[in-house]
Design a protein around this nucleic acid. Sequence first.
DNA 1: TGATCTGATGTGACCGTAAACATGCCGTTC
DNA 2: GAACGGCATGTTTACGGTCACATCAGATCA
Lengths: 341, 341
Amino acid sequence: MSDDASARRPPSIRDVARLADVSHQTVSRVLNNHPSIRPETRDRVLEAMETLHYVPNRAARALVTSRSQTIGILAASSTMYGPASSIASIEAAARARGYWVSTANIDSSNPQSITDGLAHLMAQSVEGLVVIAPQVRVVRALAAQQLDIPYVTLQSTDLDPDHTLSVDQIAGARLATKHLISLGHRHIYHIAGPQDWIEAEARMRGFLEEMGANDAPITPPILGDWSANFGYYAGSELLRVRDFTAIFAANDQMALGLMHAIRDEGLDVPRDISIVGFDDIPEAAHFWPPLTTVRQDFPELGRRAVELLLGPAEDSGGAQTPTTITPELVVRGSAGPAQRL
Amino acid sequence: MSDDASARRPPSIRDVARLADVSHQTVSRVLNNHPSIRPETRDRVLEAMETLHYVPNRAARALVTSRSQTIGILAASSTMYGPASSIASIEAAARARGYWVSTANIDSSNPQSITDGLAHLMAQSVEGLVVIAPQVRVVRALAAQQLDIPYVTLQSTDLDPDHTLSVDQIAGARLATKHLISLGHRHIYHIAGPQDWIEAEARMRGFLEEMGANDAPITPPILGDWSANFGYYAGSELLRVRDFTAIFAANDQMALGLMHAIRDEGLDVPRDISIVGFDDIPEAAHFWPPLTTVRQDFPELGRRAVELLLGPAEDSGGAQTPTTITPELVVRGSAGPAQRL
DNA sequence: TGATCTGATGTGACCGTAAACATGCCGTTC
DNA sequence: GAACGGCATGTTTACGGTCACATCAGATCA
C-alpha cells in the first residue's frame, strides 16, 4: 500500500517526462504538437502518456494560456424545443472545432441570476458567448457589461444589431398572417408570447404590420406564456365572444392548446376557425389537424452562432456568415378558407 | 495610452492586495471568508475588489484545490423533453449549493463520442457526474472507466444499481398496460423505444410482464425511435391488419403520431382504438384526444441526482435520498372500453 | 512577570502547464 | 574552417490562486 503513496495525484507532464526520459517541456511540445520534435522522441513520450494514463489538466492549461477552449451559453428556458435544439447544434459545431460548451441556465425574471450566470461563464474564461435568452432585460444587462469577448445573441432583432443572429421573426409573422388573409380571413387574433420576449414582440409586430398593410381590423394581441395550457385558456376565453375567424399563435404549443379549446367548444379547425402556429416543432405535423406553421431552423442558428464566434469553419471558404435566417411557411391542415362571421 | 500597459491583464489578488495595502493572502482569506479577518480589513479589501472589478480566476483556484465546484452532465438526446427537464433542474439544484454544471452532449451511437465526452468532463475535474444517456453501451463504457468521482446514471434500471436513480419504468409500463387491460383490452400492441435504450427495454419488460400476468396474448413489440413521425408510420402499418384494440406507446410523441395515423384511417380514438403514452409531456393534455399517459417527474429526478452526488441539501435533515421514483398514471381521454375485434 | 495562547496578518512554496530564453549540435556557406 | 542558422531539446519563469508555516501584538494565566 505504501508504494503508491504518490498515486493519489494524477500524473503530470513531469511524471511523463521522467518516464520518457525527456524534459517536461518536451512533453508539453508533444502535447501541442510542436513541429520540431523527433518522431522517435514523440513516440517515446506518447507511450509514456499511455502507460501513465496521463490526462492533461485543463485548469493548469487555462491558467497559463488564459484560453479555455470553451464557449459559454447563457440560456433561459432551455427546456423549450427551440433553445434546446440550438444548444445541441452549438455543442456539435463547437466540438467540431475542438471547443467545448459550458451552459448557464438563468431565470430570466431574476436580474441577479443573469449577472450571476454571466459571472460564472466569465470566471471560466469562456472565449465566446452565445446568449439564448431572448428577453429585453437580458440583452440590456449584456450591453451594460461591455464584454471583452465575442458574443452573439440569438433571436434578438434590433436591440444590439452587431451581436445578433436571428431568424427573421417579423417576416415569419407576416408570412403567417398573410397566409390567413389570403384565405379570406380579416378578423384575426394574435396570441403573443410573454411581453418581455424579444421574439414575441417581433412576431407581434410582424402580425400588426401585415394586418395594417391589408387594412384588416386590428385587435390587441393577447399576451401568453408559450404554453399549451395558456393557449387552451385563451381559446376558451376568446370563444365566449366569437368575433374572429382565425388565430395566429406565436408558437406551436399555444396553437395546440387553442385547437383543444376550440374542439371542446364543439367547433372545428379549420372549418370554423383557422389556426396558424410558429416554430414547426417536430410534433406539429401530427397535431389534429396537422398544424400550419412557420418553420425556424434552430440548428442552423446554432451552427452560425459558432461560426460567428469562432470564425468560419475550415472548409467553408471563409464566406461571411449571414446573420439573418429566413423562416418558411409550412402549410398543413389547420388553416382554411374564412367563414362568414 | 501607455499608462495602462498592464491593464490588458485582469486584476489578480495581488493587485487587489496592493490597492488595499494588505498581503495577497489576506485577500484570499476575504475571498474564502476566513473567520479571523478584522471587519475593517475585510471592507477595505472588498472595496479594492470593487474598484478593480476583480473576478476570481477559476482556473487558478481549480488548479491548486483540484476542486472545480462543477458537476458534469453526460447527456444524449438533450433535446428531448425528459432529459432537458432533468438537466434544467440539475442546474438549479447545483446552483443552490454553489455548484455549476458542465454539459457534454454525446452522440450515443458513436462510442468515440462517449469516451471523448467523458474525457472532457474529467479534464474539467468535475466533482460529480450525472449521466443522462440511458443506453446500455454508455453505461457499459462508464463501468469500464472505473471513475473515481461520484456519479449517477439517470434511468438505467439494473445494470449498475449502485449508481442508478430512476423512475420505475417497469412499474410505469405495468400501470399503463393494466389500465388498458382493465378497460377490457386484450389485444394490445406496444410501440417501444430504440433497442439500445434502457428505459425502452424496461417499459417493454413492464408491458410484457403485465400482459403475461393477465394471460393476454403477446405480440412482439415494435421498436421505434421516440418520434411522432415513427408513431405515425407504425400506426399506418399496424392498421393494415387491424388485429388489436389498443396500443401502448413508449412515449407521448409516438402516441401522438399513432393517433394521427388512426384518424387518417378514418377511425376514432378511443372509440375504435385506445392509446396510452408515457412521460406526460406538457402538451399531452392538449392532444386530441387528451392523452392518457404515465407521468414521470423529471425535475425531481434532477434534484435527487444532485443530492446523491453532493449530499443532502442543508435543510433536508440528512434523510437518505430514495433512488426510485414511482410514476403515476394520468387518465385522460385516449383510452376507453375495448371494442370487439 | 514571564510563559502561553490566540487572533490577525504576512511569507514563501506549490499546483501543472506554456512561453521565453538558453544550449549544443550539425550542416551550410563563403 | 570560421561564422551562421536551424533543429532538438533543456532551463527558467510566469500564470493566479491556496496552503503550510512564520510572525507579531495583545490577552490570559499561573
